[in-house]
Computed example of a mutant assay.
Amino acid sequence: MVVLIGADVHKNSHTFVAVDAAGKQIGQITVRATHSGHEKAYRWARKSFIEQDRRWGLEDCRHLTSLLERDLLAHGEPVVRVPAKLMARQRATARTRGKSDPIDALAVARAMAREEDLPAAFTDEQAREIKLVLDRREDLVAERTRVINRLRWHLHELDPEVDPAPRALTHRPAQERVREVIEAGAGIVAEIAGMNLTDLERLCSLIGELDARLRAMVRKQEPVLLEIPGCAELSAAKIIAETAGIERFATESKFAMFAGCAPIPVWSGKTEGRVRLNRGGNRQLNCAIHRIAITQTRLEGPGKEYYERLRAKGKTVMEALRCLKNQIARRI
């Protein structure tokens, strides 16, 4: 007998509901979202279902479940990730009305019983390290953009004829020219502009250090990704971070669906073969693959040839680009 344990996770607490293969609830517990709370849930499951095979299901929101996943996997427990859309459908068909932590945990468990081919949780510490560094870099880039916008407004007030391009301000020559303009000015506006410029120089330096670190990490972990035309280190880092272990995907088509690159069939009768854009999947991963596809359409090689063949057959620019993205996802 297999016992399915669904979890509804929050920042401070986790609620677990166990069901049998038919979906009947046979147990429930709520614990704190800490190492000791996770250990308590594991001991409860081991004591309550000692003679049954256990399988844990967690809603796929890894900012809340990553610690729980690692603790359960450390005990050798099988864990799968349940997409949130499956929970919503299960709640809609349930006889229990309303919404609560036990209801949501029960929905996760019953979704596990209904869907046998859910992705297994996979702990990839190297991918996690890359994601942490990449997230830090993206935070700094966003802050740099805000600093540049503020600096350009102050420069406009100091001298309307000084209008450097935003991208140019990320480079040292443009920063030095701006500093000359600021030092020639006077007053509080020039003083604040100088502070913004100092912040900009600091952020550019930090971002450069993280770029170098990411390049080294990608070359060490997955150099094969760099062999894909149009895939540079930062795109490869995004792919590694968002994939979180390519081994957890049974087939290339499942990875393409996860990345939002596989088309969705929308045909019936005479419209056989018609598909539509997939707006689901991991949009961060989809964006990285999109950048690679755009680059391949500009470079001589198989990608551009494939794209041009599709265009010659009558497909629109976006249709041909989506087909190319699907091929790139399958190669990854």
Rank of each mutant, 00 (worst) to 15 (best):
Q90H: 06
R62L: 09
W153P: 00
K11V: 03
G314E: 03
R322V: 00
L234H: 11
G194Y: 06
A244H: 12
R309Y: 02
P102Q: 01
H171T: 05
V80K: 00
L134H: 05
A94L: 08
S66V: 01
D124K: 06
V82C: 08
V79E: 09
A120K: 01
R291E: 11
E308K: 13
A22T: 03
G37W: 07
S268D: 08
R167D: 10
V147I: 04
K238I: 15
A107C: 13
A168L: 03
G187D: 07
A312D: 10
R331P: 13
V80G: 03
E161L: 11
A22K: 02
E143Q: 13
K270G: 09
L140S: 14
S100E: 11
T271W: 15
D8Q: 08
V82A: 07
S205M: 13
L200I: 11
V3L: 13
I130E: 02
A105L: 01
I130M: 12
A88E: 08
R309T: 06
A142R: 10
R70K: 09
E77W: 00
C323A: 15
Q25M: 07
A111G: 13
N326C: 08
I182R: 07
E308Q: 12
G98N: 10
A250T: 14
Y307E: 02
R54S: 05
Q284N: 11
Q25H: 04
A237L: 12
A109C: 10
D211L: 03
V275C: 03
A105K: 01
L118D: 12
H75M: 15
R152V: 01
L299N: 10
G301H: 07
R172Y: 09
E272A: 15
L299T: 06
L324Q: 11
A165H: 11
R114V: 04
H156Q: 15
N196Y: 05
S66T: 00
E222Y: 14
I188L: 14
G6V: 01
A320Y: 01
K313P: 00
K325N: 04
H290M: 10
A262K: 03
R144N: 08
V189Y: 13
R55F: 07
R179M: 14
M87F: 10
E39F: 05
E39H: 02
E39G: 00
I246P: 15
V162C: 13
Q25T: 11
L310P: 01
L72N: 02
L132R: 14
L197S: 13
A236L: 06
E272C: 09
I50D: 15
T65A: 15
V17S: 02
L4D: 01
A107Q: 08
A293R: 01
H290A: 06
R46S: 14
R150W: 08
G57W: 00
E129A: 11
R152H: 05
D199R: 12
Q126R: 15
R81P: 08
P173H: 15
R291P: 00
L106Q: 14
R202E: 09
E227A: 15
M195T: 14
R152K: 03
V218G: 09
E161Q: 11
T93G: 09
E272I: 02
L118V: 13
L106E: 11
T271P: 07
